[in-house]
Design a protein around this nucleic acid. Sequence first.
RNA 1: GCCGGAGUGGCGGAACUGGCAGACGCACGGGACUUAAAAUCCCGCGCUCCUUACCGAGCGUACCGGUUCGAUCCCGGUCUCCGGCACCA
Length: 832
Amino acid sequence: MQEKYNFAEIEKKWQKIWAQRNAFRVTEDPDKEKYYVLEMFPYPSGKLHMGHVRNYSIGDVIARFKTMNGYNVLHPMGWDGFGLPAENAAIKHNVAPAEWTWSNIHDMQDQLKELGLSYDWEREVATCHPEYYRWMQWIFIQFFNKGLAYKKDSQVNWCPSCQTVLANEQVVEGCCERCGTPVGKKDLSQWYFKITDYADRLLDNMDKLPGWPEKVKTMQRNWIGKSHGALATFDVEGTEDKLTVFTTRIDTIYGTTFMVLAPEYPDVLRWVEGTEYEKPVKEYIDRCAHMSEIERTATTNEKTGVFIGKNAVNPFTHKPMPIYISDYVLMGYGTGAVMGVPAHDQRDFDFAKKFGLEIVPVIDPQDPDVDVNNLTEACAAEGVVINSGEFNGMNNRDAIQKIAEVAKERGIGEPTITYRLRDWLISRQRYWGTPIPMIWCEECGWVPEKEENLPVMLPTDVEFTGKGESPIVTSKTFVDTVCPVCGRPAKREVDTMDTFLDSSWYELRYCDARNTEKVFDKEKVDYWMNVDQYIGGVEHAIMHLMYARFFQMALHDLGLVKDEEPFQNLLTQGMVLKGYTDSDGNYVSAKMSKSLGNVVSPAEIIEKYGADTARLFILFAAPPERELDWSDEGVEGSFRFLNRVYRLVREFIDSFDHPAEEWTIAGEADRKLNYALNYTIKKVTDDVSDRFNFNTAISSVMELVNEMYRYKTGGINEGLYAHAVRTLVVLLTPFVPHVAEEMWEGLGGEGYAYEQAWPAYDPDALVKDTVEIMVQINGKNKAKIDIPGDATREDMLAIAAEHETIRGLTDGKTVVKTIAVPGRLINIVVKG
RNA sequence: GCCGGAGUGGCGGAACUGGCAGACGCACGGGACUUAAAAUCCCGCGCUCCUUACCGAGCGUACCGGUUCGAUCCCGGUCUCCGGCACCA
């Protein structure tokens, strides 16, 4: 062990030894309880940032802690290798996406290794490697064969800048998630996954995930957006056609005074054909079609629309009512048609006001503040049904049930459920992704490539112009092929898969990463899955986490995996922030970003203080799920602490010749040290295993170190002190593994620090002879008394009663009540 | 607007089941060591008041109220901030 804490040499030394020993390789072991800890794998941008360091430090503490507690721990790492930046680099710098990506992967591997993370590198996966995407394609084909993948012509979100289709999830406030350009529309034939088939399971299974943050579950529930309601069918006057609406408020159907359809509603053009309404309706539809998502949502309250010249007949009142089209009705939700109930829906109210339509109240909330016959805004409150024929006088909640039933009896409607969730659009007009292994044959239609021909390799003879469709169409070798069914000439699909597919099953591939025969061995997956602890940023709360759950369920239904849920427990770590001075001169905290100039790079911290300090600070500064304020002074503090520990150990080694860990408690100082030691073991164990409160675990180790510094100024009990020093090093191992190894070696410990058993505490050491008790009078602290640890309530009160201060405060007064909580406090309630 | 989460010293945060509010760290102040500085070690550090000092008193966990012997914690209401969704019928 070196004289000084030379972190650079120490860290290099131990990283090399761990690598040589293959220290973190694991295999299935039926005799050991398994533990699978997984951190979200990174996109190989080339540079590690502090968010990564936080994510992987948290995972590493858990992995090492569980290993030391006897678990067979799977802790893998890999690369989410496909994605747009590689393609942009190809366009900008004329470098092949593969070359750019692999070079980044190698750079980031080095950076990860500098952090001393306990990965089993033999299981590393990269989604852009043919041995990975081969099985991605295989899974796609299984989904296709099961009817989960289908192709559909549809209007899709189109980013004019990225020249690509975006999923709804990738459109943020009407703009492209990546480049911020307002999103437009485009008609394309696209592959979809039927995730909507799993809507109910995705929803219901969340009740079986108590180890997930409520926040994430709520976000997913909202995204799925299950809504109970009813369908109601209206006749369209002067035609044989019918119009079906979805409503959650069938109780208000008598209040319907108009109908509104989405501009894209398919029958509209037919209805207006050859009439005076054809021109204005077509113009309106055209205007909507050319509006970007952002323009459509910008005019949030101002309603627009056009009458289409037809009336619908209310199936209950038999009254005719005008049909409009308006962009506030969305084709993608419900039936694309709504019944306009202005009295009880604000949007309908706004629309009715704008077009001078009738407002008929049908629910009376029986609130003196609300005059239903003279509404100034829609009244959504519950109440009694009025103006509704046979249903008058009912409570509106009951009417929701009853009217749906009656509608069903009369064949004019039925109760139903709708979801906000749409099917998953997976086609991307991009190069750097997994080729969709499908072939178009004029005779046979869409057929999958033969499994023995997988992978369908990404062609390398492509041009990157940044324009138009997928660059793959420029390949001279890729497109033309033969039909796997009939052998006639056929063409390959040129679109690639959304990269979210790649990351929807990587946790399974880690279980059997090198398998060249199968996607993975079921027995191996059954042994390791599901993931006991998944860790990553909350930005993946909806998309990644829901897609991965969908995959797991679909693979379960294919008989490939045992569990229906991939991630048993989820920890969403907070962002790393740093203070900066804004344009108004205020010092504020914000997410690290280049534009704000408040970025701290992991490399510079490792260079200056070492990986152990970086890990320690990041774990100590805040609980993992909360935001973390970066503080340069705080890093200094963590570095100081490691030096303080190092000096303590160094001094011990220099002063004693490897004393045996045998001792008898010789006095008060020994007893105190032994108490502190065992208390710390218990505290760190509880904090790390139950709550992942690494910050308080570390603070308790700091307290132990403070106690040891106090202890060594008195007479040192060699055996006890040796035990304390060694235990201290073991306790620190999961947090600061390099310096812990160095100290462990210096102490002459057997084997390596990382393979030590986690210490157990001695409950007897935690029993105190006397405890300090607070004595309160009327809830106010008045005195502290020492009482025997095993004192009963009566003993406690007797001792307190004799205390001078207490006597002085209670004499001459009536004791109304006394409360005594053993080990904590006494409260004496007095009067007079 | 709807749905989540949070609000504690100068700062990051602690208080685990309703029981001594402010652990630990940072910053700051003082002392020791040193020719000096750095480093290190030790001490102090919520606010207000009383006091030469010791000792002590009052207030204090966003705000108002409630339950309780006792509330940072439970209940009702208000405010602010953060995150997500948002014309979803």
